[in-house]
Design a protein around this nucleic acid. Structure first.
Lengths: 229, 229
DNA sequence: CTATCATGTTACTGACCGGTACGTTGCAGG
DNA sequence: CCTGCAACGTACCGGTCAGTAACATGATAG
């Protein structure tokens, strides 16, 4: 019998392609354009357009479902323009997710800042907005969660971004649960995380009218039960 | 500017390929082999081997990540053998999911049957086992949930199976919540579904030691809070 | 012995995958 | 005006994608 033995599994990511600067690379690097006057109404640079289109398509259709050809076609540019700004499609996906994460923390901190010193109200406020967003007809869940599902390989650039975000979210939720004075803060924090992830998934699975619309209410119930212990 | 206008989005699945019988097609059709004596130690039929390999690879790596060439190579068969038994890769994926769903309901009903007339214990028993499974090192979540993430297109064969399963699960959870006597049974049922989906996702995102291990405890807390209302 | 038929095979298709070598354009500074 | 250089495009790479045409084999039924 053929094909026995040497069919290794590839559980860890090994990159392909070259090394170039990437948009939203590591931290800092706030602006895209290097030397443009503020009043300049110039059309967006190629890299910017590419990332913009990629963010939209990757989120709505999934990363694996979208080829680089379609991205550059819709961006009105050509492939070398993409590969001059991004080392690979995988790194373009990672850039998309880094951008997504930025927006995520903006939303999160907005809810936090709206209720200073009241972590329970912060959570409920955040989840109320999540619940609302899941009821939009074209809701597609959390880009980072979806990317982790699409790329189970350890070390894949997209997964790395997603995992780091979820770890940090878990840390903050547990801290907030402790701040509430929960008997078992880690369990409550984790329970809230489960509800959040469940809302992301159920939102795109059930669409409008799905269980995700009750995420804030359920979180509040769970908090209540956890504080009485 | 080029490329305006006629770039339609394709949100609904349109099939490609021919029409053939499929393994685990619609209901019934219990056995694979049509005419084989029971004592026969013959090697598994091609279609059976294909589905077996596909189930393993689709679950572990994802459906989009696996090509039909790899499936037939690992199954030790060739592509026409696959396409004689399955109309398309999409339908092969649907067959994988139908099989997955069967196993899912086996696990679910096992927990239900272990605690007759006690829906709360049924849920907790089921989620205790889910929590345990999420702690296995190679846990990859729920195959149906993952497939729905991979295929957002309405009407895709894989997504159809997943959506139907989740709808039915939601129905049963709400019914069990009502049976418990919850004040707002639909909200509790939906909350339990959120926890379950959250456990599936978090299990594969965090690996061992992740928040999914607390899903049963959190579900019990949520039930308690919901019954007191 | 032969016809049938399911199951196997080799070899191929056109489209698309991610990625790249190399030429062209346009604009700034000397 | 010319040079230099960054930003872009043309045209192509080998490999893989899902899917198929045409043929071989092997067991069974008559």
């Amino acid at each position: 019998m053929l094909l026995t033995g040497t069919l290794q599994e590839r559980e860890t990511y090994v990159p392909t392609g070259n090394i170039v600067n990437q948009l939203i690379g590591t931290p800092d690097m706030k602006s895209i354009e290097p030397t443009i006057k503020a009043n300049d109404a110039s059309p967006p640079r190629a890299a910017e357009r590419i990332l913009q289109v990629a963010r939209d398509l990757f989120y709505r259709q999934g990363i694996r479902a979208i080829g680089v050809d379609e991205i550059v076609r819709r961006a009105g540019v050509t492939k070398p323009s993409l590969y001059r700004s991004f080392p690979s499609k995988d790194e373009l996906a990672a850039s998309y997710l880094r951008h997504y994460e930025l927006e995520f923390w903006e939303r999160f901190d907005e809810a936090v800042n709206a209720h200073p010193g009241d972590p329970r109200a912060q959570i409920v406020a955040f989840l109320t907005r999540v619940g609302k967003r899941t009821q939009k007809p074209d809701y597609r869940g959390c880009g980072m969660t979806n990317a982790a599902v699409e790329y189970p390989e350890h070390g894949h650039p997209a997964r790395v971004v997603s995992e780091a975000n979820k770890q940090e979210l878990r840390r903050r939720l547990r801290a907030m649960a402790a701040e509430m004075g929960a008997g078992d803060a880690d369990t409550l924090g984790d329970g809230l995380l489960l509800l959040i992830e469940g809302a992301y998934i159920s939102g795109q699975l059930f669409g409008v009218g799905g269980p995700a619309q009750s995420v804030a209410r359920n979180a509040d119930l769970l908090i209540e039960a956890s504080l009485k212990k």
